[in-house]
Computed example of a mutant assay.
Amino acid sequence: MVSPTQLHGTELVDCARANAKQGIKIAAYQCGYGDDIKTFAQELRQACETMNLKVKELSELITDQDMILTMGTGEIIAPDTASEL
Results as ranks from 00 to 15, higher is better:
63 T>H: 11
55 V>F: 07
31 C>S: 14
34 G>K: 02
71 M>W: 09
61 L>F: 03
48 C>E: 06
82 A>C: 11
61 L>I: 05
61 L>H: 01
40 F>V: 06
53 L>I: 02
65 Q>P: 00
64 D>E: 15
79 P>K: 06
33 Y>T: 03
63 T>I: 12
35 D>W: 06
81 T>G: 04
50 T>H: 03
69 L>C: 05
61 L>N: 03
63 T>Y: 14
53 L>C: 02
15 C>Y: 00
85 L>G: 06
16 A>H: 01
9 G>H: 08
83 S>W: 03
43 E>W: 06
38 K>P: 00
27 A>K: 07
52 N>L: 10
39 T>A: 15
53 L>A: 04
69 L>Y: 09
54 K>W: 06
18 A>Q: 13
8 H>I: 13
72 G>H: 11
2 V>S: 12
60 E>D: 13
1 M>I: 04
39 T>P: 00
4 P>S: 03
75 E>T: 13
84 E>I: 07
40 F>E: 04
1 M>L: 08
34 G>M: 03
13 V>F: 02
80 D>G: 12
36 D>G: 10
11 E>S: 15
25 K>E: 11
35 D>E: 12
42 Q>P: 00
24 I>S: 04
78 A>M: 11
51 M>H: 04
29 Y>S: 15
67 M>P: 00
50 T>S: 07
71 M>L: 15
19 N>T: 07
25 K>T: 11
62 I>H: 00
61 L>M: 04
1 M>Y: 07
79 P>T: 04
57 E>T: 14
31 C>M: 01
56 K>V: 06
65 Q>G: 05
59 S>Q: 10
37 I>C: 02
75 E>V: 13
37 I>M: 04
15 C>S: 13
74 G>Y: 04
51 M>Q: 13
55 V>Y: 05
60 E>T: 07
60 E>A: 09
56 K>W: 05
2 V>E: 15
17 R>W: 01
57 E>H: 13
21 K>R: 15
84 E>N: 11
50 T>R: 11
63 T>L: 14
22 Q>E: 15
52 N>C: 08
62 I>W: 00
23 G>I: 05
75 E>Q: 13
77 I>A: 12
18 A>S: 14
70 T>C: 08
54 K>H: 11
9 G>E: 12
70 T>N: 10
62 I>K: 04
46 Q>E: 11
41 A>F: 01
67 M>S: 08
41 A>M: 08
8 H>N: 07
65 Q>D: 12
45 R>A: 13
18 A>E: 15
13 V>P: 01
50 T>V: 10
49 E>T: 10
19 N>S: 14
37 I>N: 00
33 Y>I: 05
52 N>P: 00
62 I>L: 10
4 P>R: 02
29 Y>W: 14
50 T>A: 08
83 S>P: 00
25 K>D: 13
37 I>H: 00
44 L>W: 03
18 A>I: 03
41 A>E: 09
